[in-house]
Write a protein that binds this DNA or RNA. Structure first.
Lengths: 162, 162
DNA sequence: GTCCCTATACTCGGATAGCAAGTGTCCGAGTATAGGCGG
DNA sequence: CCGCCTATACTCGGACACTTGCTATCCGAGTATAGGGAC
């Protein structure tokens, strides 16, 4: 099991957009530059976030991305599902119904016990991601980051934001 | 994010071995036949289970697989990690340290706040998988499966077990 | 009848191809802007 | 001086190659068994 690298990029990008506030936009190129990742590929993930309604895209000369809602209303789950999709990680192929001991379909419980157990764990994962918002994460980061880093980032924002 | 199909096969195979009890073994071929899956590929996963100490392999003419411990002592997490590996799903590439606003390494908190948030969710997932044992799952399945299916499976066992 | 030996058939185990999904990139469509022109 | 229009430069968005890891398979090494022979 492996989460797409794009999830990390998306989360960091959203964090930056949260710091920027609702009055400014940042183009994909700048976000990529800030994180040192390929611009074209990050753009792909930002499009997914846009489609999912997590960020808003502004077209045109001074366009770019900004959060679609306040950070406190964006759950980490929203970001993760925007990139990874909302399909379940464990997919039940109903192998219990195959093989020589198979019986007629109506003899089986509606969902396989093994699948239920696995999905219970996934639900716990989702619940934890739903509990944490972007505001939480940004808050913690803001408390932990060093003053020098803050200054440097602020200077960069000054330079690129119009 | 997607779990390997082998996880499902491994779990079902372990459930069958649990029903079989510690006094019998079942070769990979039979397990594959019972579930209607490719034998050679299932064998690969059984090897992983064996390496992880979840099942024991008996070589020779009447060899096969059996559980290495009582079902109550086998956590679903053990089975899942045997197949999927114990690496984290979310991998922090430390992109916060890249880009134009990077500062010296000692300025950063030991682990990125975003990674910590993601790993918290993974911990919840693992905890839920660790809480449930093979005995739990088999117990539920035993209560849900229809009498006809039980009879059919028992007959098949009688036929193949020596 | 009992013990030992050998040949056998069966098992697991790791090394080897094929394919799908994630990774990375590009170019075209669309739009808000900036400047110039006319009134 | 003000308003409108047009050209522009910049943005996003979807369509196209490439690489990694999962899927699937095979064949060789090792071993407990079953049968036969000797005592």
């Amino acid at each position: 099991m492996r989460l797409s690298e794009g999830v990390e990029w998306a989360l960091h990008s959203c964090a930056v957009l949260a710091l920027l506030g609702p009055d400014h936009t940042l183009p994909a190129t700048r976000l990529a530059e800030f994180h040192g990742v390929p611009a074209a590929y990050l753009a792909k993930h930002l499009q997914q976030l846009s489609r999912a309604g997590v960020v808003e895209s502004m077209a045109g000369r001074r366009g770019g991305y900004r959060l679609a809602r306040p950070p406190a209303e964006i759950r980490l789950l929203d970001v993760v599902e925007a990139v990874e999709g909302s399909e379940r990680a464990f997919r039940c192929a109903e192998i219990r119904r195959r093989g020589p001991s198979a019986v007629s379909d109506d003899q089986y419980s509606p969902v396989c016990g093994i699948a239920r157990a696995m999905w219970r764990a996934e639900a716990a994962w989702r619940a934890e991601l739903a509990r944490q918002t972007l505001a939480d994460v940004v808050g913690v980061m803001g408390r932990e980051v060093s003053p020098e880093a803050v200054a440097k980032a602020a200077a960069w924002f000054q330079e690129v934001v119009r």
